[in-house]
Design a protein around this nucleic acid. Structure first.
Lengths: 196, 196
DNA sequence: GTCTATAAGAAGATAGAC
DNA sequence: GTCTATCTTCTTATAGAC
């Protein structure tokens, strides 16, 4: 094979290095708390290069959230491949609870971004909406597989499961992450049982 | 026109006017998004006066959150005075859902502050913990009144009800506020039914 | 594509007069 | 308690050389 070890730094394009660094910093400290300078220093480049790749800071914020959205969808669909919808529900609980227990867990990046971006028409908020709609649609389909009647009943169960997902991530961040799994799976089962 | 320092305006002490203005701005736009200058301009005073009342901006942030905590506790205990714990549960759902439907609703100020303040030892985060503990203790007592066995079962129900409260406020802000009441009360009832 | 240098403004906070 | 004036640092963003 060709020698690429000596060109490790050059192998990763600057754009990806900026997104990678931004993803860590924005998530762990908040978007407004991180200046472009911090990211520039983090990857070891200059302002000019930064702004060549991302005309404004918000463009990098969008790239950060798009990457997070991809991760989240992949993580969920990977963890929830079981045929049995009840085991899928359990797997989702375990996935969310495990994430909550990881060091550096700071809750849902989309909920956090929502707290920082107020304007509903802002691209960031549109992306947050999109990701939340994805979750809701996923939960609605799961509700149907679990035996909930299509239409309003399934919509209602999707609302409740999304509510529990959001609450679980808040609890994982601001509460006791070690209790999230029990509370989340118990509540999800209760909600599904009451609707089927 | 009329003198700005009219009797009504002067009757409210500067400190309270600063907290009042900060409360509106911090909640509606986010804490980091609002500079001291914006608040100073909002009440029509100067930097020197601002920093005489609040040595740092974070001191004002604390005053803002303490006021919000007081409001929340008063609102809840006022809305939930019924003898019947099932009607109390319903009243909480209605209170949270109604709040979500108010114009300018931006979710839970404590969850939002948590998104902006990362350091767990920061006074803001301690206050967030305190308010969340208050809710949890309230829910645990309610769970017992609803017939849940004291100890672990009641603790588990409190975890789940708090999870639903948090998720409901997220849904009220980032989702469809008009569907919060149905989802929240249905899920709370399901969780309680499964534990009694 | 990347660098040095810098603009232009906003941020949190203070000194000293009245 | 309040004001004018100021300080320092940080912020996003750009110009122009290599």
């Amino acid at each position: 094979m060709t020698n690429e070890a000596s060109t490790t730094e050059r192998a990763v394009p600057m754009r990806d290095r900026l997104i990678e660094c931004a993803s860590d910093l924005f998530y762990s400290e908040g978007i407004r708390a991180i200046s472009a300078d911090r990211i520039i220093a983090g990857v070891g480049t200059t302002k000019a290069t930064f702004y060549r790749h991302f005309p404004t800071k918000d463009d990098l914020v969008m790239a950060y959230l798009e990457r997070r959205a991809d991760w989240e969808r992949i993580a969920l669909t990977t963890a929830a491949q079981d045929e049995d919808p009840r085991r899928v529900l359990k797997a989702i609980s375990v996935l969310l609870a495990d994430s909550s227990c990881q060091p550096g867990f700071r809750g849902c990046p989309f909920i956090n971004a929502g707290a920082e971006y107020v304007e509903v028409t802002h691209p960031v908020r549109r992306l947050v909406d999109e990701q939340r709609n994805w979750w809701w649609t996923y939960f609605r389909a799961l509700a149907i597989r679990l035996g909930t009647t299509r239409g309003k009943p399934a919509d209602a169960v999707a609302d409740q499961l999304l509510m529990l997902r959001d609450g679980a991530l808040i609890a994982g961040y601001l509460g006791d992450a070690s209790r999230v799994e029990a509370a989340l799976s118990t509540a999800m089962n209760a909600v599904v049982a009451a609707a089927t």
